[in-house]
């Protein structure tokens, strides 16, 4: 029983981390219709940024998250304006190709710049934990989970209530109508992409505190984010949180009851099931 409680806690905390990873991907996908295959690479860059801030400037990774997010936002904004705007209305295939190219280039540049060594962001509290009776809650994961919830709810409120957020949602639903209301799409696209990449950067910082960063983590993280975004649905940031939690819990339980090699199968099984039964995601509007 204690073990089950512990595993559930593990799954929930893991799910929170998953949710932050997928948040930016889902936003960009939902609004710009770009399936960003380089998303994981941006998480990786965010991780390195946090690592540098922590190692060379001594900035705590959690306090450094806003810095990382802002820098990554800038990068995303520029990339969208400079490169990706050229293909924003192009077929999905082309966006796949270009973001794939981007992922390859970013990964390679990261290896040149940072070497293939593993980097960990290891502040003193990273290994500490809170014991609740027999159940242990790792500190760093709990904090990451907290950040995840704050970011998700923040995104949700932002999209629902702020002017920019409404404009973004309007563009996602109907570009022509949004234009009539004076929305400037190029700026808006760049803002959206920037926010998406900023979120990826923040996720990278969190990832570095609970796991380690090397130039090649991107592809796996993209795949994971993908699955989460689909399970949760693209319409609503809260869906992504649900998707992350579902995946985290299922993976943890699978490892416990079936075996450690079956974690991935379980998550893809859930993915197929969701796609067949509820293709717009658990919290998405039914098709």
């Amino acid at each position: 029983m204690d073990l089950l409680a512990q595993i559930l806690i593990n799954g929930i905390l893991l799910g929170g981390l998953y949710a932050v990873m997928a948040l930016g991907l889902a936003l960009v996908w939902g609004v710009l219709n770009i399936v960003n295959l380089a998303h994981g690479a941006f998480i990786m860059l965010g991780g390195y940024l946090s690592w540098h801030l922590y190692t060379y400037l001594g900035i705590d990774p959690f306090l450094g998250l806003p810095i990382t997010a802002v820098v990554m936002f800038g990068l995303g904004y520029c990339l969208q304006r400079g490169v990706l705007n050229l293909i924003v209305r192009a077929p999905m295939f082309n966006t796949l190709l270009i973001t794939f190219g981007l992922e390859v280039v970013l990964t390679y540049l990261a290896q040149m710049a940072f070497s293939a060594d593993f980097r960990t962001i290891n502040p003193s509290y990273a290994g500490s934990n809170i014991a609740l009776g027999p159940v242990v809650i790792p500190m760093a994961r709990l904090m990451a989970f907290g950040v995840a919830v704050v970011l998700t709810v923040g995104m949700w409120l932002f999209l629902l209530h702020s002017r920019l957020g409404r404009a973004i949602r309007a563009t996602a639903q109907n570009l022509v109508a949004a234009r009539l209301y004076g929305v400037e799409p190029r700026h808006l696209y760049a803002m959206t992409f920037g926010i998406g990449i900023g979120l990826a950067g923040a996720a990278g910082g969190l990832y570095g505190t609970v796991s380690q960063i090397d130039p090649y983590i991107g592809a796996t993280l993209t795949a994971k984010s993908f699955a989460i975004a689909i399970i949760g649905g693209l319409d609503n940031p809260l869906g992504v949180l649900v998707g992350g939690l579902v995946l985290g819990i299922i993976e943890s339980l699978t490892v416990l009851y079936i075996g450690a090699t079956f974690g991935d199968v379980a998550s893809f099984g859930v993915l197929v099931l969701v796609l067949i039964v509820r293709p717009s995601g658990l919290l998405g509007k039914t098709a």
Binding site: I98, G101, L102, V104, L109
Partner: peptide, 13 residues
């Protein structure tokens, strides 16, 4: 790797 990546990007554009 970087060459392949760049070629893909250029080709798309």
């Amino acid at each position: 790797t970087i060459a392949t990546g760049l070629i893909f990007m250029v080709c798309v554009l």
